[in-house]
Structures are given as C-alpha cells and as structure tokens.
Design a binder for these strands. Structure first.
Lengths: 173, 173
DNA sequence: CCGTAATTTCTGTCTTTTCTGAAATTTAAA
DNA sequence: TTTAAATTTCAGAAAAGACAGAAATTACGG
C-alpha cells in the first residue's frame, strides 16, 4: 500500500510515541497503518509499506491481536490473512485501557495486597512505611473500582458527562 | 538505608513495571525508595541501598525533579542534598498525568492538527483516511479538554464523584 | 498425499537504551 | 585562595530489546 505524505507522517509519529509508552515501534506503526488503511491489508503489504521484515509483522500482529485491536478477515479465493484494525477510536482506547489494567494495574494491586498482608507479621518495617503502602493500596483500589464502574456505562452517557466538564460537580454540593 | 523485605519487594515491583510504561528501572526504583522512605535520603544512601552507580542516581533524580516528583532539602551543617518524594499519592498521579499530557498528548494533538490542516490541500489521501485522522483529532481534543476541566476541580469533589460511580449518570438522564 | 503458498518460530545480529566509572566541575568550608 | 566534599558530565561498557532472515511448520489446493 502506498502511503501519502499525510499518512506517512501519522505512522511515523505514532511509532515515535510508542517507546514512551513501552510499546515497540513496529507494533505501533503497524497499528497506525491498519487504523488508517481504507481496507484490510495482508502481512506482505504491511511489511512492504513499512519496510520491516515479514516475520516482524507476524509477531507484531499477534501482539495487536492479544490487545484485541486487530482482527483477521479473508477474501474469497485468497488464502492470505487480511488484517484490519478497530476503527472506532473510543473502542481503541477502551481496549488499551482494559489491557493495561489487566496486565499492569491488577498485578500491582496483587502485590500491594500481599505487601499489606505481610506488613502485619513484619516488625522491622516502620509504621510510617506500612501506612504508605496501605495508602497506595487504597488509592489504586479506589481508582480501579471506579474504572470498572464507568466501564459499564453506555458511551452516550459517558460522553454527556464528559461534555458537562466541571458542571457535574453541582450534583455533589 | 536498610530495606526491609516488604520495602524491597515494593521497590522491585515498581522497577519492573517501569519498562512497561517507558520509564527506566533506576528512575522507578529511586522513586519507589524515596516514596517509601520515612526521611529524606542523600544520593549516596540511595546508590548504596539500590546498588546502582552514584552517577546514575544523579541523572535519575534530575529526571524525577523534572516531573516534579522529588525535591531537595538540607540539614543544618551538612552540604549534601537530601532528596524526598511527594508522599501524597493523589498528587503523584496528578504530576505524572500532567507530565504525560505535556510531553506526549500535546505534541500528538499538534501533529494531528497539522495533519488535518494539510489534508485540505492534499488530493492523494483518500477521504476515508482524512476522516479517520479528523476523528482522532476530535477525540483527543475532547479528552484533553475534559482533563483540563477536572484538573481544576477540588479533590474532595472529585473523590465524591468517583465514589458515586455509575450513580453520576442519573443527572444526565 | 504431494507440492506450494502462507504463516510462524527461532536464532543470531543489530540497535537502542541504560548504566557505570572516571574525569571534570561546582560548591563551600577552612 | 586552597582544599576537600559533593555533584554532574561524559564516554564507553553492558544489558535489554527489536528486528531480519532462515528454517520449520501449518494450511490448503490439486
């Protein structure tokens, strides 16, 4: 697939942002390409467009599928896999946040719970430190619970709330 | 400073999470240590406790200061710098989010605005693709604006809203 | 069941990032 | 000043991560 200068720029920027968020450049570039692409692409097309090895595309696509951001389609009379990305940007963000919560926040919560439990039968750790860990646990649990809640809300509701901005505050006065 | 097993565990976990978010392990470990530490520490104490080079501590601390997460204090009759981290976990999150917005979201917004502008006098990029970029821009602008708004709200208000969970929805029926 | 297209796995190389240790600089007390 | 402590800078080593290309596997048409 031939990239126009505008697309080229988006793909490159997305790739540059990647490392700042702990994502490999290839994964991000492929995601950007598939997000923009008007129609599904084969792995070979992706490799050629972005000038990366075919095998790299294979691994990166697997990663994107694990995040539920990319899916496979097929064309009649063609054995090749055609890949497409979610186009709904809101859904994209949701998938990324769900994934990060599952992979990073939940294990951290786990660790904090264990640390807090251990702190009971731990006489060397200063009380102040234990308190700090307990605060952290409470905070992450609160945020996590909040996310789970708003996660269930229908998008139009969420949008309305967002657009109200600080005006939502009036209901808690 | 001698780490208790509980503290040791927290520091290690924080360090492991770091790379997933594009942060170096040293920076994260130092931050965890200073967050937990009951009192400010010198660079040498940090280096010794975490078994990292003194110079590494210097650079990492600079990074943490740039994020406004760590500050310097002094003790009477002691020339050395004593470092301490923000203890208020809510503030810590706020600082991180502010920093990420400034460093990553704002430049992305910039790029999207330019891409959208260019798209006007660009006859090769398919309409569909332009639309996708425009959608993206609108979405990021919306989120960004929302963040700026809630950023101004007093913390107790925010806390109350969070604890209401999905119940806030009733005001937009 | 065979041959070929498509995909994936794997190993080594290359790149990037992180980190160290020495040297240089700054700071402040003597 | 001089001296010594503290900090920072910097060049290169080490580690981690990303990537390419070959080999292996799988899937499919004939």
């Amino acid at each position: 697939m031939q990239l126009t200068p505008t697309m080229h720029r988006c793909v490159l920027h997305w790739g540059e942002m990647a490392s700042r968020w702990g994502v490999s450049r290839s994964v991000a570039q492929i995601h950007a390409l598939l997000f923009l692409a008007p129609s599904p692409l084969t792995a070979d097309e992706i490799a050629e467009t972005l000038n990366v090895a075919r095998s790299n595309v294979s691994v990166s696509i697997k990663e994107l599928q694990a995040w539920d951001l990319v899916s496979v389609t097929h064309q009649l009379g063609d054995r090749r896999d055609y890949f497409q990305a979610r186009k709904d940007i809101w859904e994209v963000l949701t998938m990324i946040m769900d994934g990060r919560k599952k992979r990073e926040i939940d294990p951290t919560l786990q660790m904090l719970r264990e640390a807090t439990a251990d702190a009971g039968k731990d006489h060397e750790t200063p009380e102040q430190v234990k308190q700090r860990i307990a605060d952290m646990l409470e905070f992450v649990e609160e945020l996590s619970g909040w996310y789970d809640q708003i996660r269930t809300m229908p998008r139009p509701t969420l949008l309305k709330l967002m657009r109200m901005g600080t005006k939502v505050a009036k209901i808690v006065t």
